[in-house]
């Protein structure tokens, strides 16, 4: 398959003005500003093929949005190579953006005062979408996302879930082949999330759209993606399938203990390093236990453990994760 996105050694460092405390510092700042360097994206490389659907996850401030911004051409990388759809996004922005769709879940692109449908009509002019294509897309998307009922309402009256669906449709009406969705499910309820997931899947399956999206919700990833990239502190720490990450941790177990005083405790460990016996003995020695269960950790927990440094992904899978 053809390569759609190639990123090599991309870096983005922000310069943040350093603030001292007190009046002297404030006055001093007027003349001699000190800056701190914030490494938002620090040497990231990956490549994505046409037709792939890839989920980016990582804790807040990991550098996901910064990566999306570099890929969509609205931020220059400080170093490294970023190429997408045969363009260098930040250099050939005008040409490049014709064929991409971008949604920033936290910032709506819709016109607050106008009915939703008017914002869609505007896209028709801006992207010069042929009428037939526009109408076909609009009909299909509205049906899939169940939007007919609020097309005529001003955007400011829409619920967050409705607005988000509107934003997604607005970004896809011109049938882009490459789509970036930055937290398209943020703050939505389960039903709205499911609708959006279905829609993303549909766009990828039926139209072979290459999709990259970021989220905090592992469910999004499990239900939609075939590939997962985990970013933390500006670095890529995992790139592969969800199955693989689960496989690597089949030896990791979680023991859940219900205490007599009503408390609940969990402990996660690698069975090849620490025997179940030893863990149980310790627990029984220290606590009064009412109930106990041993389970495989959910993907959410694995991810959390990775963020918190309790599991390391760089360990070869044969040895499993370190506790």
């Amino acid at each position: 398959m053809e390569t759609m996105i190639a990123v090599e050694g991309a870096r983005k460092y922000y310069r943040v003005a350093k603030r001292g405390k007190g009046l002297t510092a404030a006055v001093g700042q007027l003349f001699n500003r000190k800056y701190e360097i914030k490494k938002a994206v620090d040497d990231i490389s990956f490549s994505i093929k046409r037709g792939e659907i890839v989920g980016f996850i990582g804790p807040n401030g990991a550098g996901k949005s910064t990566t999306i911004k570099m890929l969509s051409g609205i931020l220059y990388p400080d170093a490294g190579r970023v190429e997408a759809d045969g363009f260098i996004p930040y250099k050939q922005r005008k040409q490049y953006v014709k064929n991409i769709g971008v949604v920033f879940g936290q910032k709506s692109q819709l016109n607050w005062d106008l009915p939703l449908i008017e914002s869609f009509e505007l896209m028709k002019f801006i992207y010069r979408i042929p009428r037939e294509q526009y109408e076909k897309n609009l009909r299909q998307f509205c049906e899939l996302l169940d939007m007919e009922s609020f097309l005529g309402q001003p955007v400011r009256q829409l619920s967050l879930g409705q607005r988000m669906r509107g934003d997604i449709v607005a970004a896809l009406l011109h049938s882009p082949e490459l789509v970036f969705l930055d937290e398209p499910t943020i703050g939505l309820d389960v039903v709205a999330k499911e609708k959006i997931r279905e829609f993303i899947r549909y766009m990828n399956k039926e139209r072979n759209t290459t999709i990259i999206f970021t989220t905090h919700d592992m469910q999004d990833i499990e239900k939609v993606c075939n590939r997962l990239i985990i970013i933390d502190k500006g670095k890529k720490i995992y790139d592969g399938s969800i199955e693989e990450i689960k496989d690597r941790y089949t030896n990791v177990k979680t023991i859940e203990v219900l205490l007599e005083n009503g408390g609940k405790e969990t402990e996660t460990f690698d069975v090849r390093r620490t025997s179940v016996n030893a863990v149980l003995e310790r627990i029984f020695a220290e606590r009064r236990v009412k109930d106990i269960s041993v389970c495989e950790p959910e993907i959410d927990e694995i991810i959390r453990d990775i963020y918190e440094g309790r599991l390391r992904l760089d360990a070869p899978s044969a040895e499993g994760g370190a506790l």
Partner: peptide, 13 residues
Amino acid sequence: HDGSITNEFLKPV
């Protein structure tokens, strides 16, 4: 101020 200016750079106009 609200950062939506960057959205404008995503449009081909």
